[in-house]
Design a protein around this nucleic acid. Structure first.
Lengths: 214, 214, 214, 214
DNA sequence: TCATAAGCGAGACGGTACGTCGTGTCTTACG
DNA sequence: CGTAAGACACGACGTACCGTCTCGCTTATGA
């Protein structure tokens, strides 16, 4: 769906992409209009369609553009410092991109490139930040050797995005830090629980039907 | 934007709403068309617009319809049993509604009724299931008295929805159970950490700019 | 290229067609815009495209509509009276349609329906008017029995259209009448010349080339 | 709108003009595309627009180029010979230009230069050929002194163009010669009719309305 | 001899119109 | 009266062409 940038006009491309992102934030994917975007930068529709074959491709490119920076790396000397730094970065990114992401989650189901952009441009960054921090912490003996890093890295983005996208609330810095101190760090230090309780899992509950059929 | 059901035709309404949900799952909010819905049930557009004033109202109603059942309540006698039962219910609901939710997250930003439906019909159910379970567990002394219930209940839905909507993966039952056993239960039992480390939080990291401007 | 008229809205169709004809007269085929037409009658493009598949089809229909009346028939009792009446009718029609025709002559080359409309709706009317007049005149003995009717009927429209379309002048009534009196009537009365001069036709002249190649 | 030939590249100009004429014949004015023309001669749009300021100017120039040769003059010694020679020339020109003319009649209404080109490059040639022939014939006493030359010269082009452009038929040489022998020559020899019949012209017929309103 | 200029191809660009499609309103005819 | 059918005004989409423009490349001349 993406298109090799034209020879000239790199500046024009950036302008189009950042403007697209602005409009996206303001109005959401559905209400975004190509005409609105081009009129803001005094361009013409052809200039857009010469680069991207459709509205959705334009929007995807704008998102890719927005998340295409080098993954952050923090080495503050302590696990807590690293995680707090990563959390601050996450919160900044969400502030910038939460509205845009909301408009793209549906599109992502049908657009492999967008899915890749989200994964590689955003999620992998979170994973790498956390993975690096945990690796250094393990060498320093700060955490249990069997800590489940693959689960741990997801906790912060999952909860932050849940709050932004599902609950519709922003997440203040202190909340994010509490999340690190009261959830991530304790779990990392404790490692996996000694043994999963032997009680067999209960039978699956009866499936619900959509309408309150009773 | 809300529903004014006509006297007759309750069955017709259900048919329209469930069909709307089907189309929504298949094609997403943006690509859903009223004509597609009505042609599937051999109805006419007027029949839809007599009941709901817009496409978004129809879709909201379909979602409300889908989540409008009594909140589940599980009392299995143990916290773990309750949480696992709640997790199974959550996983079932996600299986049924993940695609639909993806299509509505953007619309929710502009549609208060949809936001309410999501909150009351879906999230509050999760909260109540967990809150009840934790309350009983505290009475039984199974968990620390200062366990942060408001944070704890969010962990399961946040991580499950993160996996479904962000990572694009479904969550198998065993994974859900591991989440209960290795994250929720340990945190509940431990309660809040003795004291937040006294180290002052690091200064906020420099904000990133969108393009790799270096 | 034509389309069965929709059930309702015959009035709307007429309105669209006459407005199309107006715009056509004012601006010519090339500069005519669907948006201009629909905005004049407060219609929408879809209303046009529901009936006619393209701009050219609309314009053709407007022309067909404009020439779709019963062929005139004049029986004034004398050949001269009949021809003058036919001439007046021709001049009226040209006044009404000359600008339109100018815009359609090119399109006619590619549009069989338009060609048919021009032939049957306009030219055949001329032929029939003249043919009837000459037939009655021959019975009355007013003209030579061997008068070449197939050539005679063409003279009036050919010269009038030549003046309108090629020379860009309108033809006043007196000029038209002079044409009848000084060209058509004399030729009709004289019949074919006694014998074609026996001189063999000269050899065809050398073909010219486009550029003044000398 | 007129031509300002660049210093070099006369050959290029000819190439462009003749190619334009070709495309014009094939597709008509409206469908002619600058891109089509330049791609056929491996030129670029700038090369066209450096010479002619618009599509219509290019097309006009192509037509002017096509009709810009010295007016023919035939002096065969007899009126009939002159007229037949002129007719052959006319038929040749129509063969070459009928399609092009069809595409330009509409444009001519709005383009004074094109109107001039048609008049001076094509029509005046016909007029001069005929006028010369008739002048010599009058001196020789071959025609009536009061023959209406201004009307006579138009008959041949009017009828030939009528056949080509309105009826959509080509005109074979014999038909053209018949036209000379049976129409033009008899009228020229007879001169104006002795007296216009005294019958007053009939009242103008009722104007027709566009739709068959009865 | 080489530099300065000019025409050239290529094609991006701002516009404008096209023809299509979906929304939400409305009318018509049927049961 | 509710409904199926579908016409309608509106407005966005994605395409095509016009006329302008900038870019290098080539060529052709003049210092």
């Amino acid at each position: 769906m993406s298109v090799a940038p034209l020879r000239g006009g790199q500046a024009r491309m950036d302008e189009l992409l950042t403007t697209t992102l602005d409009v996206l934030k303001e109005t959401g994917y559905e209400r975004l209009t190509i005409d609105e975007v081009v009129s803001r930068v005094h361009a013409s529709k052809a200039t857009v369609y010469r680069r991207w074959p459709s509205k959705s491709a334009l929007v995807v490119a704008a998102f890719v553009h927005a998340v295409s920076h080098l993954p952050a790396e923090y080495d503050t000397g302590s696990l807590r410092g690293d995680l707090l730094a990563g959390m601050d970065d996450l919160l900044n990114e969400m502030e910038r991109l939460a509205d845009v992401m909301a408009g793209l989650i549906d599109e992502k189901r049908r657009n492999e490139e967008l899915a890749t952009a989200l994964r590689e441009g955003f999620l992998d960054t979170r994973r790498q930040v956390a993975a690096g921090a945990f690796a250094r912490a393990r060498e320093r003996g700060e955490i249990a050797p069997d800590a489940d890093v693959e689960m741990l890295w997801q906790i912060a983005p999952a909860l932050v995005m849940f709050r932004w996208l599902m609950m519709g609330e922003s997440v203040p810095r202190e909340e994010g830090h509490r999340l690190v101190d009261e959830v991530v760090l304790p779990l990392a230090r404790a490692g996996r629980p000694v043994s999963a309780p032997a009680t067999p899992p209960p039978p699956p509950p009866p499936r619900r039907r959509a309408p309150p059929s009773s």
